[in-house]
Design a protein around this nucleic acid. Sequence first.
RNA 1: CGGAGUGUAGCUCAGUUGGCUAGAGCAUCUGGUUUGGGACCAGAGGGUCGAAGGUUCAAGUCCUUUCACUCCGACCA
Length: 410
Amino acid sequence: MRQSKLFTKTAKETPKDEVSINAQLLIRAGFIDKLMAGVYTYLPLGLRSLEKIKKIVREEMNQLGGQEILMPALTPKEIWEVTGRWDKIDVAFKLDGDGGKQYSLGSTHEEVVTPLVKKFVKSYKDLPVAVYQIQDKFRNEPRAKSGLLRGREFSMKDLYSFHKDEEDFSDFYEKSKQAYLNIFEKCGLNAVIAEADGGVFTDKYSHEFQVFTENGEDIIFSCETCGLHRNSEIVKEEKCPQCGGGMVKNKAIEVGNIFPLETRFSDAFGFSYLDKDGKEQPVLMGCYGIGPSRVMGSIVEVNHDEKGIIWPESVAPYSVHLVSLCKESADIKKADELYETLTKQGVEVLYDDREGATAGQKFADSDLVGLPKRVVISPKTLAEDSVEIKERSSDKVEIIKIKELNSRLF
RNA sequence: CGGAGUGUAGCUCAGUUGGCUAGAGCAUCUGGUUUGGGACCAGAGGGUCGAAGGUUCAAGUCCUUUCACUCCGACCA
């Protein structure tokens, strides 16, 4: 992508209505734009990062056996009355249609997915089943905050699993933990599993995936001896319930959450199956959520410095920022050629070919946008058939021959 | 939803006890000079002072209402 063609621009000054680091940097760098509190547009750079996160999520969900679907965001009142949740979910956005018809914008999808899967699953031979979608969720948060971390419209991957018995459910649930850890690791986040309240669905705990950072809004107690993590909401005393060791508390961002749903929804929708003996048995369910948009915000919260974002390679919108300081047409031509060559080879390059910007502006913008590698091409480097290469995460600058660049980028 | 704060140019902000034609920096446009860490000079364009109502000879400034945004709390992925 030629930066001169990118319709967004970077901003030198911090927006006054954003306090969180993720929103400040993502807005300044031209990744997102705020429409209203908790609702953001994804600009070209931001959309690329978001899509990369979603791709990582998809890979792991598919690996886990999940089948991707896309359910409607617009849902009828009737399905929520089946479970008694029409008036219970107070963050639900509700809409009035013609003829007294009422709708809700999806804040979660158990009421859609359970009758959906019920249509196709009748026998123990049809189980287990896991389906997922990646969609925008709508929740009328009483207080949207912290940029992408708590929005009113946000990207969510929600997976639902259906099982014939407890053993099968547990097996899948444990596998899902590993899939989640894989996702966060690939996204450059160091997440831990914390036990949390199971909510109204189960007596068991649910499990949260937490990334430690001072800007998090959850408090996690961690045992220094056995490594157990627990959300402060279920910690009654500051002593490890598992080994009795001392616990320390830290702030963290919840980037994922998995729940045993047991038969809460299958019972409500009359979803059962026939076992080998032809007997009707209840279907056990689990649900598993990750917010890709929140993950994106979390990545920025954890990976930045005073100059800007430091994207992990896996989720960076482009992997190389080719910064041209060339002025003469012969030099510009060489820079253009390098951009085209790299792009043809499959390297994702953002090419700063802007004519008006000074070297200082280009360097500052490059640090702000935070692509993993910066390659500078200038009259100086061209005099030696070279470019300068630098990692965003390091101060080390190297001059290398242009023909050696390939081996350094792959 | 309770408490607090902020709304003035695209962005960040000044604007005194109410007083002349509402300002600066950045950004944008024109011309010139610069050219490896957010340059410089000269000029130009850009405003329903969040909105509505009120007080006053006169309101960005005072009063009332309202909307938006932010923070703390409660709630929550």
